[in-house]
Design a binder for these strands. Structure first.
Lengths: 224, 224
DNA sequence: GTCTCATCTTAACATTGTTCAGATGGGTGT
DNA sequence: ACACCCATCTGAACAATGTTAAGATGAGAC
């Protein structure tokens, strides 16, 4: 927003590279850094992420991010919050896609969870890398809680335990089991642990083929 | 082993710190570095691991490890191989503890998997961090395959599909589901994702309480 | 006893995150 | 219109890391 870049008072119209025409006061550096971080994350993953590279892409000095985010964890926390929001949205869309049947909704949420992880492994990995995040940020905790609640209410609907009352251990066990199942599958998939057994279609094909067979073991799907 | 440190030919008996009385030719540097790496991994985790700190603890220069392992990935790969061996051993012990009932054996393997992850998060995390390992090392692949086979045969026993013939998709799905369930639970546990819901007993207590409820959703446990 | 060569060190380089003193200029108050 | 303030950004510096190259060392073979 407020990107009045077209008619810069000074500097003329010589070069337009990101690092070339600095305006000293960037104007929207905070958003630019977040965008750069998201792209970098998508390209190189969490461990390939670098604060300096981020600053480079935004066309500012290595010290600039500190004024907006404190340190690298601060910037990554912002990206993680957006990751949680996107994950929650994906779960909600899966929910909506499930129609009126609670069991089908839970199933669709599982598909959405794994789909998010495989299509956006960068943010997915990031939100679980507490060592790179500022866990004291209440906005992060809240975003995570909100995403988790989608799954919990889905299980509540399946087991007929709606509301906000504390869940009994067996039902809470079902929540954790559902989460564990899709979380484990997602992680194993993006970590390449299935590549050993992949056929000609590669990892993606194997994941898509096997995921339905795996989701058969979701809580509520035949037992409770 | 073979630590003939007591009677050094030169240097007398002044200082005994690891870095103090170098002998230029360490004698067992390879093993010493692996040991240091394992300790460091247990203390700081994969991301806290540092090759230089390893060399420091072994009492050698930062460049010394390169002669034995090439680079950091080489050393970590050695540690990861031992991690796979230890994991497989844990699974086998769980298997043995399960007695003659295939279903109980699978259940015990699940307990062993999560137990390994929570009691030794360092190696557990490492073996899935392909970005830090030398994945071209055939010994690593083989060690991983061997560990995976423990789970596969456990499922084969449960479903009555013993042998080495390729598994049909539904049964292979059961293998992946079992793996995903314990893998996801283990990761969520050591990542602290359950801490939000932990009671006065802390994370460990919650894990121990909920794990049985989660393992109820293991393949074969009521459905197939 | 001499020589060879694996083993280890010293020194250096590029890269990273982070801090600090200062430069800059957009916006506010007058 | 003008001057000032302060959030914003730069430049330089520091400590730490992985890795490489050239040289020192000494254990074991001849």
């Amino acid at each position: 927003m407020a990107d009045d870049d077209g008619t810069s008072a000074r500097g003329g119209s010589k070069r337009r590279s990101a690092a070339a025409d600095r305006k000293y006061h960037h104007g929207a550096l905070r958003e630019a850094l977040i965008a750069a971080a998201e792209h970098l994350l998508a390209e190189k993953g969490v461990d390939g992420f670098t604060l300096r590279e981020c600053a480079r892409r935004a066309g500012v000095s290595p010290a600039a991010p500190a004024h907006h985010f404190g340190d690298a964890a601060g910037l990554l926390t912002e990206v993680a919050i957006r990751g949680f929001v996107a994950l929650r949205q994906a779960l909600q869309e899966g929910n909506a896609h499930g129609g009126g049947d609670p069991l089908r909704r839970l199933h669709e949420q599982g598909l959405a969870y794994v789909g998010f992880a495989t299509s956006r492994p960068g943010p997915f990995r990031l939100i679980f890398r507490k060592d790179r995040l500022d866990c004291d940020d209440p906005r992060l905790s809240e975003a995570g809680r909100a995403a988790f609640l989608e799954l919990e209410t889905a299980i509540r609907d399946v087991t007929g335990k709606a509301g906000t009352a504390p869940l009994d251990p067996p039902t809470f066990g079902a929540v954790l089991a559902a989460w564990s199942l899709v979380h484990g599958f997602a992680h194993l998939a993006i970590d390449g642990e299935f590549d050993r057994h992949a056929g000609p279609g590669g990892r993606q094909a194997l994941v898509e083929t096997m995921l339905p067979h795996v989701l058969r073991f979701m809580p509520g799907d035949g037992r409770d």
